[in-house]
Amino acid sequence: MDFSELWAIFGPGVAGAVFGAGWWFWVDAVVCSSVKISFLHYLPGIFASLAALMFNCVRKEDIDYSPYDEGEWRLKLWLFIAYVVSFVSLAASVGLLIQDALGKSGPSAWTGVAGVLQCVFVLISGLIYWTSHSES
């Protein structure tokens, strides 16, 4: 067996483990927090999960990289929107980390760090699954 066959077999499991680790960081921060976490802090992780789902709705084989063919514009628009959602969720989690680190009365800085780790791990898991699942 070569690496691509092994990656096609074990890649989705690795992606699931990385996704679970990302959400585990967030659940740990919420459970260990001494103050109530507002729903606003949950949104970056939810949108990162949505972006990972959006990435995985597209197969790599369906993307045509020819600059002269306009047949796949809907697919490329879908991927562009997925990229925008993923980067906005990551930027929002970093913004909440800065807000938590600077504020004295809000959640601890660990809540912000866990939110950033959650977004990074969820988006990495989407990339891992997309590369492993689309192999033919």
Rank of each mutant, 00 (worst) to 15 (best):
P107K: 06
G103R: 14
V85M: 01
G45D: 02
L97F: 15
G95W: 12
D69Q: 12
I9F: 15
K104C: 10
M1W: 08
A91W: 08
D2E: 09
M1R: 10
H41Y: 13
V30A: 07
G103Q: 14
G126W: 00
E70I: 13
F19L: 06
W73D: 12
E70A: 13
G126S: 02
I81G: 03
L79V: 06
I98S: 08
V84D: 01
V14S: 04
A48Y: 00
L127E: 11
W24K: 09
S33Q: 13
F121W: 03
L79C: 05
L75Q: 08
S38L: 08
G22D: 04
W23T: 04
C32V: 13
V113A: 08
A17T: 09
S34P: 08
A82C: 05
V14H: 02
A91N: 01
I9D: 14
T111F: 15
L102P: 00
W23E: 03
S49I: 02
G13W: 12
K60G: 15
Y42V: 10
G20P: 02
L127Y: 14
L96T: 00
M54F: 05
S33M: 08
W78H: 15
W130T: 03
V30E: 01
K36L: 12
W24C: 10
S134L: 01
D100H: 15
V88C: 12
Y42A: 11
K76N: 06
W24S: 11
A51P: 05
I37L: 09
I63D: 05
W24I: 13
L43I: 14
Q99R: 15
P67R: 07
W7G: 06
D64K: 12
V18K: 00
S38M: 04
Y83F: 15
L6D: 12
I63L: 10
F39I: 11
D100R: 13
F55R: 00
D64S: 11
A29M: 04
V31T: 09
V84K: 00
K36G: 10
D62P: 01
V30D: 02
C57N: 13
K104P: 03
V31L: 13
S132E: 04
S89L: 06
Y42L: 12
Y68H: 13
D64E: 09
